[in-house]
Every structure is written in structure tokens, then in C-alpha cells.
Design a binder for these strands. Structure first.
Lengths: 413, 413
DNA sequence: CTCTTTTTGTCCGCGATGCGAATTAAATCT
DNA sequence: AGATTTAATTCGCATCGCGGACAAAAAGAG
């Protein structure tokens, strides 16, 4: 088990300082001292070390003149050039790659609209490797300048082991994608559930900033769940990220069904296909079009289309109610593409949640809807890697099994 | 936010040493050094302080002669008399009180078979106060010698605030039971979900000892859920303990229902009443008898009774499958009185879980059945208080909100 | 019985850390 | 130009964990 020594002490405090600088933009040492409750002496020492390592830089511009009298504060901020990382998002029909700097600003991104559905891991590995190399090169960087890569993909992912246990976009099970990509690129590479990435992005940059407990439910072709609990991404035992689609919820025909078969785009599409085929050309059924058409119909007053969406919303409402019961988060973020933002989907969801929650939890959770760009996702992937670079020493003081579960095990090179 | 200073360092290491001594019985300094990975110097210093504080004592008896040659090891163990704490368990038909020493050995226990169902909090407070005073006195102790009291009760409990949000045995909502009892007794008092207590007891003394992730599902009159995650009791945001009965699971008539209405003893009793009333005297329906009769009938081949139990088992199976999906624990402990251990209840539960789990999680969880005595419960309550006395400094290094959520806020006196 | 060997536990000095008080630095106000 | 105010650094101190030297306490060898 990791022992608590002065080194750990410093690591913890250094992380707090870094975190304060990252979160509160250009910030002076006094402010850091207040935010972290560290003495100004300690903050000075730590920032000096960080400046020495070029992880942070002083904001030269005296532009920020505060009305005060005394010696002006020296504002500090992350050094954008301190490191570069790559984020990758794998979706069934697209690979998105982005190169970011140390501030998680996207320098260059690349979208490969390729159906990788049910491809072999090795084929996908080829595509990702090429995409990363290309994107890094386009950003004017050399692959050797990249400090880390993080890949997000749907399914059950065991980040600590770098293994994707099962994913809708992979044929194989238990794919060691992290180490594989690490070998290919010669850069430490990790994988994580795609929703975890966007959850972290939401925590770092989004509207849940500073909110230490919230849930993210992502509705796309498959269903994802991200949990931020006590300011940390929640993972099951062994660092397993849960898959929301595997939850069992009541279905109309009695009994239960996998949520993925009731409330994902994929499941709605099957419903929709039957409904729409009666009147429309098959061409319109191609991919996302069908959802768009379904939404249009529902908006136009088509009862059956509205019912289809409502059923999906209600099914997800069951799951969200259960999750609120377990985690009592002040905020639940529902996200996805067109469907998730449709009121025909969200209104039944809200209604179901309200009906099912016990009185004691009735008002604890705000349910908000939000749509993300592809950039949000890859920015989350970058943030995940940066979080490692910052050196968050969490969980290192617990029993050995705890540490092993939390230690990010990057792909060796 | 709590800052990482030498004091915290020491607190962490002291906790590890205490934990090692508690877990591995009489143990020598060298062994502690190996277990904690602290240097022998540090272990010596810490144990010296602990000895000085009389929290631990050397095992005088040279009885334990190890075959080795050199200087014999001095075995250290917790000092049973270092402190005394009281555990209380509130159930709908009984109040159980126990006084334990610093090793969580029960010195004296007291069972008050009183129906406190739907009593006011103040009446229950009276009963608990009297019970605690009586039990402490019976143990030959003065109330001033008690270092802490922990009360376990079913329902939604916010331990950090000492508030019981809602409980089947309380009329009122948001009862500040912890502070109230603290005032009454003049002893720091906390409350927690009853299942959390038994979960901790299972972790400290039971068959899940050393298992850092497991679930406890308790089936009695109401349903409870305890989650041990990464070696710590899991609580929702704000330290809220979830209530399993509030989960929504599919019901036979389509749609969902609260699990408490499907799989608790209370719900089964309602079913059972209808079935049994046809043939039996009302007298036999009194309380737990009905369950016993139901089980006997089912064992005797009564199809309808067996169905009733199976339906309850299946409903709980749905919930357990969802929980395994979320937490992926290596072990799930099902417990309760007669019903929970009946194969007519457990077999359908297992079957349902097996049918619902995705392939990737099929074999991660052992489902075991276990029955606890009342002593197990109150021992857990004692352990919860002792854990505070040991001074586990967890979560004190996170952002302020984290610390506030985790800091056990004892009832002031 | 004495001396050696072996293992355990303690003492001393080192380096790292955080912190409080004093000090220096850099601006504005008078 | 000097006083005032605020920011940041420097210095001295206490605590901590650790490695190495040292003392303690037993068994085995002679």
C-alpha cells in the first residue's frame, strides 16, 4: 500500500494548486492560497516549482489592473505548450480525433466518417493509429511531442486494465485496446467509456463545473452513463464503467427488458422503421434520417410516432429514477443527438421520473438537457489524460486493492 | 478544503497502523511494517504514541513463541478498555441495544421487543434513551464512559447531517435523531442506515472481510441496501444512504412498481394474508408467523405460496441485476430473516439475475445468503463509531464539498 | 556458563514539507 | 518624495518518514 510520506503530501497540494489554476483561469498566488487553504508560503513554493517545470506561466500583461492599491498580483495560468495530448472518440459511424494543448484547447481535430460497426479491433486500431498520426501531423507536431492518448468508446470498459470488456462497435470481447495503441504509437494510451470522457468534460468545462455530484445520460445509438461522485468519476469494482444499456427496466408487455432495447436510438429506429416504411421511401430510412423523420412526424401530430418516442422516454425515466434513488445527484444531464433533445422524448422522461421518485427525493435532482459537439467528447478525452499528467494522487493512500483499482495503467511502450 | 500537512500524514499512517492491528489480531511491529509498507522506524513511533494513549496494549504473555531465534516479537493488540461505545438498532418491532468495548466485543446487549412502528420520534427517543442508559448501567459502566453512540434504522438516512429523511418506522420526515439523542445522553451520537451498519460489520468481522467491493441486500419488513465500494461505505451525494425499496422494478401487470411493494416481507405478507386466510385461523397471521406459515406451505408443495415467494425473489432479482450492472461487485450478500434464506425465494432470485446480466458481467458476482443475529447489527453500529475514533482521515484532502459530505458530524452535546 | 548469531525494536541524523513572522517588492495615495 | 497598502519571498521552526547505526533479547554453539 502506498504510504503517506512528505512526497505524497506535496503531490496532493501540488494537485490542488494545479486544479485551482486550471479551474479559475488566470489567478494570483493569494487567490490560490484562499482557494486551497494552503499558506501563501506553500503556494509560493509550489508555484515556483511549477514555473520551473514550465507547467504554468505568469500572465505578462499587466492588462488586468485591479483597482487595488498595493503591489499588483501576478496572474498565473496553465502553460498551453507544456504538453500536448490526443483525444479519440469511437462511435459506430465515425472516428473523431483531436489534438489539444495543456489547457485542453483543441488545436486540430479530424473526423473520419467511417462505419466501424462490428469491425475487428485490429482494423479499428489501424484506423485510429492513422487518424492520430495524421491529426498530430496536421497540428504541426511530431508524435514524440504527444504526452498521452485517450480513446473513448461505448460499452463496458475497464480503464485500469486498459481493456474493453464489450462494446457495440467491437466484435471481440476483452480487447486490450489501450496497450495495443500504445505499442502502435509509442505513446502512453488509455481507454475509457465514452460517457466518462464527456462527464469529465462537463465537470471541467461545462455547465456542471464545480458540481461534485451529477449524472450524465447519453442517448445515441447506444446508451451511456457517466457518474461524477464526490468530485471523482465513479467506477464499479475493478474500475469497470457501467453500461446503462444493460440496466433492466419495465417494459409495456410486462416483465423487464434491457434499456438498450427500449430507449436507445437503435431501438427506436427499429420501431420507427416499421412505422415509417408504410408511407416513406426506404431511402429516407438511411441512418439518422429516420430519427429526424420520426421527430418531424411526431411534431406534426402523428400519434404513433409520438408514442414511440414517449415509450423510449418513459423507459429511460425508469432508469433515471433508479439512479437518482441510488446517487441522489443534484443534477442529471441528458444528452444525445436530435432525439434526446426532443420534447416528445424528454417530457415523458421527466414525467416518469417525477412519478416514480419517492417524496424524500422529489426535488433533489435537476434534469437538464444538453447537446454536445464532437469536440466536447474529444476534449473530455484530452482532459482525462491531462488529469493524469497533473498527477492527481487520489486513492493512493488506501489499501493496496484500492490503489490498484484506481492507478491509471497506461499502455506501456 | 483540508490541506495536506504533516498532521494529516500522521493521521493517515496512524489509521493504517490501527487498521492493521484491528484486522490482524495481535500483531508485532515488524508485521505491521510489512502490512502497511511503512518503515519500522515510523511504525515504532506510531505504536509508541498509541501505547502512550492506551489505545493499544502489548500482549504480555510470551505464550506466542515463534520458532525463530532472535529477539521475540512483542505482539500488539487493541486495548479493549480504551473506549466503550453503544450500538442501537431500530426495527419496526424491536429496539436492540448493545455496549461494546474498543474491540467491538459486545459486553452487554438488551432487546426491547416493542412495536415502535409509526411512533413519534420523541417517543422513540425516550425508549432509546432509556434502553441505552439501562444497557450501559447493566454493563457496569457510567454513561460518561461512553465515547459514542450510533443508531441504525431503516429508510433514507443522511448520516453526515444526522438526519433521517424518511423511515418506515418514523411518522415524521427529516428527523434530527442524531443530535437529539446526543442532547439526551450527553454523548456524541450518530445515525446511519441500518444496512450500512451490517455492511461494515460484514467488512470488519464477517465473511466479506478484506473484500473491498460488495453489496448487502437486506430483506426484512423493509428492504435495505448497503454498498461497500473501494473499501468504503458508499453513500450518495450529501451522504444520503439509498433505500433499495424505492427502486422501481418491473411488475407482472406491466409497468413498474416500488421494490418495497413487491419483495419486502411487508408486501409478501399482504399477499400471504389473502392466501392463508382462506384456511387458517387469523391468530396465525400475527406478524412473523405468517411468513413462517407461508414458507411451510411452499415447502409442502402449495403452488400459490411458492409463486408468491418466487415473485418476490424475481422482483429482487431485477434490482440485484441492475446493481451488479452498476457496481460489478465480486460478492452480493442477501440477508434477512426466514424468508430471505428460503430457497423458494432465493432460487428465483438467482435465476432472474443470471437471466438478466449481460454476458460480460455474468460471472463477476457471487450471490451468497446469510442470516444475521441482532448482535451482528449492533456490532456494526459499534464498529461505525469505532471507525470514527480510529480517526480515518479519508476524503479530507478533496475539495471542500467533498470533505463536508464525508465528515461525520456528530451530535453536539 | 560464555560467546556468537539472529531477529526485533529504538535512537540519531538527514532531507522534505508546511507554516508563521519578518522582510522585501511594487504599486497607489498624499 | 514619503507613507500606505497589498503581494510575494525569505528565514527559522516543528513535524514527519526514512535509512543506518545501535541496543535488546532470545536461541544456539562451544
Amino acid at each position: 500500500m502506498k504510504t503517506a510520506d512528505p512526497e505524497l503530501m506535496r503531490a496532493i497540494n501540488r494537485f490542488h494548486v494545479m486544479d485551482a489554476i486550471r479551474r479559475f483561469g488566470p489567478v494570483s498566488r493569494v487567490e490560490i492560497s484562499q482557494l486551497t487553504e494552503l499558506s501563501s508560503t506553500t503556494v509560493s513554493a509550489i508555484t515556483a516549482a511549477l514555473l520551473d517545470d514550465r507547467l504554468i506561466v505568469p500572465l505578462q500583461l499587466g492588462a488586468v489592473r485591479d483597482a487595488g492599491r498595493g503591489r499588483p498580483r501576478v496572474m498565473l495560468r496553465l502553460n498551453p505548450g507544456a504538453a500536448h495530448v490526443v483525444g479519440v472518440k469511437l462511435a459506430h459511424d465515425q472516428i473523431t480525433v483531436a489534438v489539444t494543448n495543456f489547457c485542453a484547447d483543441i488545436l486540430r481535430s479530424l473526423a473520419l466518417p467511417i462505419r466501424i460497426d462490428r469491425q475487428t479491433a485490429s482494423v479499428i486500431g489501424d484506423l485510429v493509429e492513422d487518424g492520430v498520426r495524421r491529426c498530430v501531423s496536421d497540428a504541426g507536431l511530431d508524435i514524440a511531442q504527444i504526452s498521452g492518448v485517450c480513446v473513448g468508446l461505448p460499452g463496458v470498459v475497464e480503464r485500469s486494465a486498459g481493456v474493453c470488456r464489450q462494446s457495440p462497435i467491437l466484435q471481440e470481447r476483452d480487447v486490450r485496446f489501450g496497450a495495443d495503441l500504445g505499442h502502435r504509437l509509442g505513446v502512453p494510451s488509455t481507454i475509457d467509456s465514452d460517457v466518462n470522457l464527456v462527464t469529465l468534460a462537463e465537470y471541467w468545462f461545462g455547465q456542471a463545473r464545480g458540481l461534485n455530484d451529477f449524472l450524465v445520460v447519453n442517448v445515441e445509438r447506444s446508451l451511456g452513463l457517466g457518474i461524477l461522485h464526490n468530485g471523482e468519476l465513479f467506477r464499479g469494482a475493478n474500475g469497470l464503467s457501467p453500461d446503462l444499456g444493460d440496466l433492466i427496466v419495465p417494459s409495456l408487455n410486462g416483465g423487464g427488458e434491457r434499456l438498450a432495447d427500449l430507449a436507445s436510438e437503435a431501438s427506436v429506429l427499429i420501431e420507427a422503421e416499421a412505422l415509417l416504411r408504410e408511407n416513406e421511401l426506404d431511402a429516407s430510412l438511411h441512418q439518422g434520417r429516420a430519427i429526424a423523420l420520426l421527430l418531424k412526424r411526431a411534431a406534426g401530430g402523428d400519434e404513433r410516432c409520438a408514442r414511440t418516442l414517449a415509450a423510449a422516454g418513459e423507459a429511460l425515466g425508469f432508469a433515471v429514477a433508479s439512479l437518482i434513488t441510488l446517487f441522489a445527484p443534484p443534477m442529471v444531464i441528458i444528452s444525445g443527438r436530435a432525439m434526446a433533445t426532443s420534447d416528445h422524448f424528454i417530457a415523458p422522461l421527466r414525467k416518469t421520473v417525477a412519478a416514480l421518485l419517492p417524496a424524500s427525493l422529489a426535488d433533489v435532482s435537476d434534469i437538464v438537457v444538453r447537446e454536445w459537439s464532437d469536440e466536447t467528447w474529444v476534449r473530455g478525452a484530452a482532459a482525462m489524460t491531462l488529469r493524469d499528467l497533473y498527477g492527481a494522487p487520489w486513492g493512493t493512500t488506501g489499501p493496496a486493492s484500492v490503489r490498484d483499482a484506481l492507478a491509471p495503467q497506461v499502455g506501456e511502450l
